[in-house]
Design a binder for these strands. Structure first.
Lengths: 243, 243
DNA sequence: CGCAACATTGAAGCTTCTCAATTAAGGTGG
DNA sequence: CCACCTTAATTGAGAAGCTTCAATGTTGCG
């Protein structure tokens, strides 16, 4: 699924060229640093592998680590008292997890269908930023990109119909895949219909119906349950009406 | 409406004690700085006053400034191609506007019923952060708080019924008002029903009906069109089910 | 190969929206 | 200060879209 094989072992070596890349905007936390500075960061990372559905951390756990995804996909979600679940985001190779003003994780992180990550101690990262202010600058850029993404999510949830939301979701996944290399079409969906539904704030049955409707209108082709071909990217983006 | 009178003139003087406070979590960008550093920042600010409905900046304008609200309220919103509007947030005294990874403003900023702001040139702020890394650290904390707030907004939009959303909105406004001083009850609403509707992703008629319903259930009292008394804060927060 | 989880499809019901009419509030000019 | 006019808010009725519940089909893992 991921284009780039994970070159590092799951023990201690670390490929600094992939360290803390924020794929949303292709911001690389290490891009501004000198080689010896990179070495310092790489020594802090611990690489880990998770199987399908494995939990990286639970909502409410003490937030001791930040993560950089190197392969696979991770789902962030919160669960309300009533049991309803909101999926906050799906993170892929290159994405960063860790922005929060709270000392506990505000969401649960789970591997969607397996994932590899690099884990950094929050304390280590804090100490490193004191020596290397450039890191903080990068983090601020990445956080700003996160804010933009969250606000796009808000607009979609607030103003779009079910079919528009699903269209916007497919366009977003396609674009994100393209930034990781490749064409981004067809779109590969590692997550279930229920995951998508909880991301878009609707029932999973409605997801099915919207896939069928978009297909009947010729905008997409459901090549298999997890592979969606976008027949006309501009038309689909236009239909989604997401600015 | 604002508890603190704006002490600075609308020309050039600047009260550093109110500089760039992020009221969402009471993070003060200047808190970590020395007096002479504060002086540098204060010299960068230009204070401005806006009347009801006045536009601070338009979506798509070149983002040359960042703002700190010192009085009144500002509404941030985006408009889709179809004309639908999403209100991203309401900002009050102490709140900060400016996080974006784009060179253009991603939203329109308008004074709700009049507002006073301190404006900083983005370039000036960038230069200042190069000399004072502490500022960047504060900005990162503020951005993290922004991300948390956006994710709460997402969860509310995705998982809550109309009445739950309105309850959560009232609880949030009450808490924000309390951080600015005062009891936060009754809640004062500077914005229209349509503004609230576009923030919560529903029709403004539904806002009216939900106010009526919450009142009939005894949770609130609509003292006047813009003043809502929360009769039982815990019950309302519980009803809103927002974690 | 078989079972359990996931996905699709149908039908009925409910929440919310839309359209429309009425009432209330706010601002302006006399 | 009041009358008027415009904008905002409320309320009602009908329609639309989405959800829920249920049955069936599909996928994939052990």
């Amino acid at each position: 699924m991921a284009k780039q094989p994970a070159r590092q072992s799951d023990k201690f070596s670390f490929d600094v060229s992939r360290c803390l890349i924020c794929s949303a905007r292709n911001l690389n936390m290490c891009g501004a640093l000198e080689p010896e500075e990179l070495a310092k960061l790489s020594g802090m990372a611990r690489c880990e592998t998770f199987g399908s559905g494995d939990v990286l951390f639970h909502e409410g756990d003490k937030a001791t680590s930040v993560y950089n995804i190197t392969d696979g996909a991770v789902r962030l979600s919160t669960t309300l008292k009533s049991g309803r679940r909101q999926v906050i985001g799906f993170l892929f190779s290159g994405d960063f997890i860790g922005f929060s003003d709270r000392n506990e994780y505000p969401w649960t992180g789970e591997a969607v269908r397996g994932a590899k990550v690099c884990r950094f101690s929050r304390g280590d990262l804090t100490r490193a930023t004191q020596e290397l202010p450039k890191i903080e600058h990068r983090l601020l850029e990445m956080a700003s990109a996160d804010i933009s993404a969250a606000q796009d999510h808000i607009t979609m949830l607030g103003q779009s119909s079910a079919a528009e939301k699903l269209s916007a979701f497919l366009v977003m996944l396609s674009r994100k895949a393209a930034t990781r290399g490749g064409s981004g079409n067809p779109v590969h969906l590692p997550m279930t219909r229920e995951d998508i539904a909880d991301y878009l704030g609707m029932a999973f049955e409605t997801i099915s119906r919207c896939f069928a409707r978009l297909e009947s209108e010729g905008l997409i082709t459901v090549e298999s349950i997890r592979v969606i071909r976008i027949n006309d990217m501009d038309a689909l983006a236009d239909f989604s009406d997401s600015r």
